[in-house]
């Protein structure tokens, strides 16, 4: 087992454990902080995959903006920081069984895939990830159209969010 594999296993375990805590802890602020930990774990996975730019974006946007907004929203709208409702419902064992079956199925599926055992190539040191990413996003031969559609989509979502949240007087 190489060093990077050990690092990956530690990080993945940490990420999954924090993700589990997000949904099981009853304190909403703790849940938000565990969410930050989860997102940070994902950022480290990006870094291991040599996607440095995505790792930075993950930290800046997901942790720096979205998770902090969560905490603000929880603090500003809730007087009670604890969730007192039941955490499980009647379907818990069926759900667990289904999740287990899907996990086994997916593991089987992915292990039969020929890319499963392939080792990622080392990227050259002077590889310009950010430049390539930027060009891909705005080049008509690459992802210009999806990029623009995403911006229209966000505009529509923004208009809708304002409409739904705005209280008329």
């Amino acid at each position: 087992m190489t060093i990077s594999q050990i690092i990956f296993l530690v990080v993945a375990g940490f990420t999954l454990a924090s993700a589990l805590m997000v949904v099981t802890t009853r304190n909403l602020i703790h849940a938000a902080l565990f969410l930050v930990a989860t997102l940070f774990g994902v950022a480290v996975v990006y870094a291991i995959l040599q996607a440095g730019f995505l790792a930075v974006v993950q930290v800046v946007i997901y942790i720096g903006a979205i998770a902090i907004l969560f905490i603000f929203a929880v603090m500003l709208t809730r007087r009670d920081m604890r969730d007192r409702g039941p955490q499980m419902n009647r379907m818990q064992w069926i759900g667990a069984l289904l999740a287990l079956l899907i996990f086994i199925g997916l593991s089987f599926l992915l292990s039969s895939w020929d890319g499963y055992s392939a080792v990622a190539q080392e990227m050259p040191a002077d590889f310009d990830t950010m430049g390539r990413l930027g060009e891909a996003l705005v080049s008509p031969d690459a992802y210009l159209l999806p990029f623009e559609v995403a911006s229209v989509l966000l505009l529509a979502a923004l208009v809708g969010a304002v409409y739904v949240a705005y209280t008329r007087r």
Partner: peptide, 8 residues
């Protein structure tokens, strides 16, 4: 893009 406006 077709769904989000429909949700709203």
């Amino acid at each position: 893009l077709l769904s989000i406006p429909l949700y709203i």
